[in-house]
């Protein structure tokens, strides 16, 4: 029994109840479209995904761009930290949900993760397709995060551990520009060399994805959460696979950990900091 029931406001979702149960929907509408009575069987998963965030269905070019980006991002690869995190869950029989939670948490970071994408997308919103503005931003001191996130240690969207832009990333950029020429992706293709030369390290997946999300009209919050979602399938598959192999076949890095006293460690950190 209740005195006054709270309600939830939304511009995405509307429901009409079954006659025999107010807690079951007879019809569900996403931004005005009847999901099960109209959309189902007629739109793709990617079109529906776009509709959920943008509240309009994508045009064919936008749908193809998001579809292609989704394939490119679906498996960051077995060495990616977010996938590694998920596999840690799988290898020792942790819950499958924990594997995804681990993949999301690790894949959320400022190094190639959701927060990297967020900052890169914010740059696109602030700087637009203006090379001089980007070069100025690269050389400006990094703003300290006024938040619980760690301060940024590299320019958003680029990979500080990279040498040159990896082949798959260049291949993806080329395919995406073919689908969607004339926008942020095109500008990134045309100016990648200049940006990488100024930085001294190459474009990363978050930077490529930020340009694509900018072309698709996603804001930074939408882009960040969608990027987290789109990178999960590989983490999921690899986690489940590791359940079969088990911990005995999963790296433990037995000899990697080098315990040391505080002074030796401080000296080491200083030498790493100063190393060329």
């Amino acid at each position: 029994m209740t005195d006054q029931q709270d309600s939830i406001r939304t511009a995405i979702w509307h429901e009409e109840a079954e006659p025999d149960n107010p807690y079951a929907a007879a019809a569900s509408y996403c931004s005005g479209y009847d999901v099960y009575g109209d959309l189902l069987g007629k739109v793709s998963w990617i079109q529906y995904l776009y509709l959920l965030f943008r509240l309009e269905l994508p045009d064919p070019r936008q749908a193809q761009l998001l579809e292609t980006l989704s394939v490119a991002l679906a498996n960051p690869g077995i060495r990616d930290p977010s996938v590694q995190a998920a596999m840690n869950a799988g290898a020792c029989g942790s819950t499958r949900a924990s594997a995804l939670m681990a993949g999301i948490a690790v894949g959320a970071g400022s190094l190639g993760g959701g927060h990297d994408l967020y900052h890169a997308l914010r740059l696109w919103q602030r700087l637009g397709p203006e090379l001089s503005a980007w070069l100025e931003a690269i050389n400006a001191p990094a703003a300290d995060e006024e938040d619980s996130w760690q301060p940024l240690e590299h320019f958003p969207g680029f990979d500080p551990n990279g040498a040159s832009c990896p082949t798959p990333l260049r291949q993806t950029l080329e395919v995406l520009v073919d689908i969607y020429p004339g926008g942020a992706l095109q500008w990134l293709t045309d100016n990648r060399d200049s940006l990488e030369k100024e930085l001294g390290y190459p474009l990363g997946w978050a930077g490529l994805s930020a340009a694509a999300f900018h072309d698709l009209g996603f804001d930074a919050a939408q882009g960040e959460i969608l990027y987290l979602l789109l990178r999960l399938p590989g983490a999921a598959a690899h986690a489940v696979e590791q359940e079969q192999y088990g911990w005995r076949h999963f790296p433990f890095f037995r000899s990697a950990l080098k315990p040391m006293d505080r002074n030796s460690y401080s000296q080491l950190l200083t030498s790493i900091e100063k190393a060329p």
Binding site: R9, A11, I12, W13, E15, P22, S31, G32, D34
Partner: peptide, 21 residues
């Protein structure tokens, strides 16, 4: 805290059909 369908306060696009999109 179960919610009924009517507890959703919808303020989005009016109903539409895919063929009219």
């Amino acid at each position: 805290f179960p919610l009924q369908c009517t507890d959703i306060r919808y303020e989005g696009h009016h109903k539409r059909r895919l063929s009219c999109a």
